[in-house]
Nucleic acid binder design. Structure first.
Length: 896
RNA sequence: GCCCGCUUGGCUCAGUGGUAGAGCACUCGCUUCACACGCGAGGGGUCACAAGUUCGAAUCUUGUAGCGGGCACCA
């Protein structure tokens, strides 16, 4: 079989996914063990309008690593995919399309418009579902959900009705964030606060009865037309006498009172505040406290109303501002204008400046729900945030200060609020029109025109996707889910709401853990964003370096913010190629061999050192990986895999076993060595699979002897695939510390000889004799037993191992840890002065180190207070250094 | 304003109360029969700064500086 020298990711990425999906490997039903433990993840549903960006790729990689890992461990595994209808985004997108045709949504009317959105969805929505297949995401597409599906919509109505019946949802007139462009209300979380360079205007209001006046400072002069009071601090002596008096509001001829309120900061501005209850959240509260009139002077289009006066009506808010200032100046009532920086609220989507307006909306009362979430954290410490710092605190602090949630939106795309009104305006909240009619006792009902905030349905996601309110088998099996993997920016918008809703309606946490990923920044450390145009498209990276290499790069990001670094992907592309070529070597030498995990199940003294060693390393690696993944230590896991495969397996094991494996003649030894090599490779591929699904499947299927026996017992009937193979255990009885110690001695020996060859400029092809002296009998036996391997790897002409080193004067020498010595006779090649200098340098290094250790031991408090084993360790190290220093000294003297 | 995080070799990042790590970049040598997307050998960091705790601090505490982020109703 011909295997190309270079791995082509595209080839491997072409067919496996389709096969996995068709065979049903992603569905939990593939697991035939009725007692299998359960692992489940509900995907953070991407917007139906969205296309894949780095953040998705990052999260999906981590979720897929966990899912594939747990599946291989025999868990009944479900990673449930789906999408969010994304109310505003989607409506805007379709409206923009309409605009190209010269239409607005109002031209179509609500029903036609919504139809149009559904059409758009089926034709071009959900790009991400295709892109996720490319990523290799092992989600169960048969359970894919959309927040506007009928069953999920039913859950939304059910929740709405129940909360309404408990008085946790109410309708009322309150001041809200209004977007004059999108013509809808927004929740506090959907507005952005931005610093703004503006001006502070000092306006003077004359007293009603001649003489005095009060000057107020404001950033929004146009709202003065709606003022209904001026407030001062009750303890402010400057204004004490004015409290209760009446002012004449300029430009309007209205009389307004001066009131006293603790809210007012005497230090700011003039210490007197104009109060506009209808157009400022603070003033709104103050207005309620003092029973002030709400004078609405700005409408939902951010234009002035008739109440603003005949000369202002119809003016844009900013035009009105200029006009107010102008008129104050004319009247001599503008005291001054100063530059002032303040923060301004903008619509998250369209960046329009928010207008606070009083509006009739639906709200969710959060206190009781908040208490459920806080109680869950206090009593059960759920969910467990990873990393715990700072997210647990951020989450609980936010909950503690939570305010009621505006849940209605003036949109057409979304879950229409299940409330119906009679002609008289009486409201009936019901699960359906039929139920509403029954409740109202009339058929003459109109449904509320508003829809619910997108996040309302998202909050139900972990259970609505599993069939709630029906008590389905899926709901029983997969709820609560195991872990939520998400970016940090939706902890409030989404995570907290899922916890509250899950606790409320399932009486159970929605997930055990919340893993908060880091963020991928651009190379300058800036957030990637569409508007900045600095995003890196994951699909392009897939094309350039392969999906597996990209996944490895993303997995190692873990929880820290990382600048995008293409070099890193390239190095993992190289790693994939390394895997490919290691397998290529194994396969090129696989005649007469077969994968047999049993070969790796025993550690016996008569096996060669490198075989016992690689089994030990393999099991240690598996053990470490399991530990890393259990703690969501993705970076650590990637490093462990990389170094096991490249360093241990490729650099050492393959090289050490190469002689046996490539022997010309067929023999039982050769067959055994080949089978062993294949079996180690096979285990290594399993370890890698959750991170690099494509290359591992591609290679695994090519290995001789791969069949159902290798699958986890829960999947024994399935067609073989590495994704159903059992994840290596990491068995402690196969970890052989002695073998690792001995192998390390061999590795050190080989490295020192190579170092000598390099420093002495010995030609790569030239063979040199190697003399080893070791006073330690066991080490001597180790070196002797591995003569052939050592000889091969250092290109020695001969290797002799003796108790005492007996080398000619013209030799390059080195001293190893443990007192072994080696010499490479270099008659005619060696420069004595240079060699002396080389050894002297090394000796000085050791002497410096010894001095530090001696100082440590000389401190009586060290011996007294440090733990015994630490002291013993330092003593042992010092003894070893002393011995080596002595040997080096001897070597130098021998050189003359 | 309040809170939080980060600061480790040229670059991107791990890590840890007890001898400083990786990848890339760099230097030298290699067409060694899996791989030049490779092999072998090297150089390079007083772990931002200061004080403290400790037998011992790059790691813990406090403060300072720089960078980044979150929260906040100051007109």
């Amino acid at each position: 079989m011909e295997i190309p020298k270079q791995y082509d990711p595209k080839e491997a990425e072409l067919h496996h996914y389709e096969r996995w999906e068709q065979q049903g490997y992603f569905a939990p039903e593939i697991n035939h063990n009725p007692d299998a433990p359960v692992f489940s993840i509900a995907i953070p549903p991407p917007n139906v309008t969205g296309s894949l960006h780095m953040g998705h790729a990052l999260q999906h990689t981590m979720m897929d690593v966990l899912t594939r890992y747990k599946r291989m461990c025999g868990y009944r595994t479900l990673w449930l995919p789906g999408m969010d209808h994304a109310g505003i985004s989607t409506q805007l997108m379709v409206s923009r399309e309409l605009k190209k045709e010269g239409l607005t949504r109002h031209d179509l009317g609500r029903e036609k418009f919504v139809e149009r959105v559904w059409k758009w969805k089926s034709e071009s929505g959900g790009q991400i579902t295709k892109q996720m297949r490319r990523e290799g995401a092992s989600v169960d597409w048969t359970r894919e959900k959309f927040t506007m599906d009928e069953d999920l919509s039913r859950a939304v109505r059910e929740v709405f009705v129940r909360l309404y019946e408990e008085d946790l949802i109410y309708r009322g007139n309150r001041i809200v964030n209004w977007c004059p462009n999108d013509q809808t209300v927004l929740s506090d979380l959907e507005v952005l606060k931005e610093p703004q360079a503006g001006k502070l205007y000092y306006l003077r209001y004359p007293a009603k009865n001649g003489g005095g006046s009060v000057t107020v400072a404001t950033t929004r002069p146009e709202t003065m037309l709606g003022d209904s009071a001026v407030a001062v601090n009750p303890n402010d002596d400057r204004y004490r006498s004015l409290v209760g008096s009446t002012l004449m509001l300029p430009l309007t001829n209205r009389e307004i009172p001066v009131v006293a309120d603790e809210f007012v900061d005497p230090e700011f501005g003039t210490g007197a505040v104009k109060v506009t209850p209808a157009h400022d959240p603070n003033d709104y509260e103050m207005g309620l406290r003092h029973d002030l009139k709400q004078v609405v002077v700005i409408d939902e289009h951010a234009k002035m109303t008739a109440a603003a006066g005949a000369s202002f009506v119809g003016l844009d808010r900013y035009k009105a501002r200029d006009k107010v200032v102008e008129e104050f100046e004319t009247l001599g009532l503008l005291d001054k204008v100063v530059d002032y920086e303040f923060s301004i609220s903008r619509c998250e989507r369209c960046k329009t400046v928010i207008e606070p307006l009083i509006s009739l909306q639906w709200f969710m009362r959060m206190e009781p729900l908040r208490d459920l979430a806080l109680g869950l954290m206090t009593r059960e410490k759920k969910p467990q945030f990873v990393p715990e710092v700072p997210y647990e605190k951020v989450y609980t602090n936010w909950l503690e200060n939570l305010r009621d949630w505006t849940i209605s939106r003036q949109l057409w795309w979304g879950h229409q609020i299940p409330a119906w009104y009679t002609k008289e305006g009486e409201v009936f909240v019901a699960r359906s029109l039929l139920e509403a009619r029954a409740k109202a006792g009339t058929d003459d009902l109109n449904q509320d025109q508003d829809v619910l905030d997108t996040w309302f349905s998202s909050g139900l996601w972990p259970f609505s996707t599993l069939g709630w309110p029906e008590e389905t088998a899926d709901l029983k099996t997969f709820y609560p889910t195991s872990v939520l993997v998400t970016a940090r920016d939706i902890i409030f918008l989404w995570v907290s709401r899922m916890v509250m809703m899950g606790k409320k309606f399932m009486n159970e946490r929605p997930f055990d853990d919340v893993f908060v990923t880091g963020t991928i920044l651009d190379k300058h450390g800036q957030r990637m964003s569409k508007t900045k145009g600095n995003g890196v498209d994951p699909l392009e990276v897939f094309d350039k370096f392969g999906v597996d290499a990209t996944r490895l790069t993303l997995a190692q990001v873990g929880t820290t913010d990382t600048r995008w670094n293409e070099k890193q992907v390239e190095s993992y592309r190289n790693f994939a190629n390394k895997i490919w070529n290691a397998a290529r070597f194994c396969l090129m030498n696989s005649e007469g061999a077969v994968v047999d995990p049993e070969l790796l199940q025993l550690q016996e003294a008569d096996q060669s050192l490198h075989d016992r060693w690689i089994v030990s390393r393999l099991n240690k690696t598996a053990r470490d990986l399991r530990q890393s993944l259990a703690g969501y230590q993705f970076h650590e896991a990637v490093q462990t895999l990389y170094h096991f495969f490249w360093d241990d397996f490729c650099d050492w094991y393959i090289e050490l076993t190469k002689a046996e494996v490539t022997a010309e003649e067929d023999s039982p030894q050769r067959a055994l060595a080949r089978s062993r090599l294949l079996s180690v490779l096979e285990q290594a591929l399993r370890l890698l699979h959750p991170f690099m699904p494509y290359i591992t499947e591609e290679l695994w299927l090519r290995l001789p002897g791969v069949d159902q026996k290798l699958l986890h017992q829960s999947y024994r009937d399935a067609e073989p695939s590495i994704m159903l193979a059992a994840y290596p255990e990491g068995q402690s009885h196969l970890i052989d510390e002695r073998a690792e110690f001995e192998m390390q001695a061999v590795i050190d020996l080989i490295s020192r000889v190579r170092n000598i060859r390099s420093e002495m400029n010995i030609k790569a092809g030239e063979r040199v004799p190697l003399l080893i002296g070791s006073p330690d009998k066991e080490l001597r036996e180790v070196f002797a037993a591995n003569k052939n391997q050592i000889s091969r790897l250092v290109r020695a002409s001969e290797v002799s191992v003796t108790e005492k080193l007996d080398a000619p004067r013209a030799s390059a020498r080195a001293v190893l840890v443990g007192g072994a010595e080696l010499a490479v006779p270099l008659e005619g090649l060696i420069d004595f002065a240079q060699e002396r200098e080389r050894l002297q340098k090394e000796r000085e290094k050791l002497i410096n180190e010894a001095a530090k250790l001696e100082a440590q031991l000389a401190n009586p408090q060290f011996a007294e207070r440090a733990p015994e084993e630490k002291v013993a360790e330092v003593r042992a190290r010092l003894a070893d250094i002393a011995q080596r220093t002595g040997q080096l000294k001897q070597s130098i003297e021998n050189l003359g």
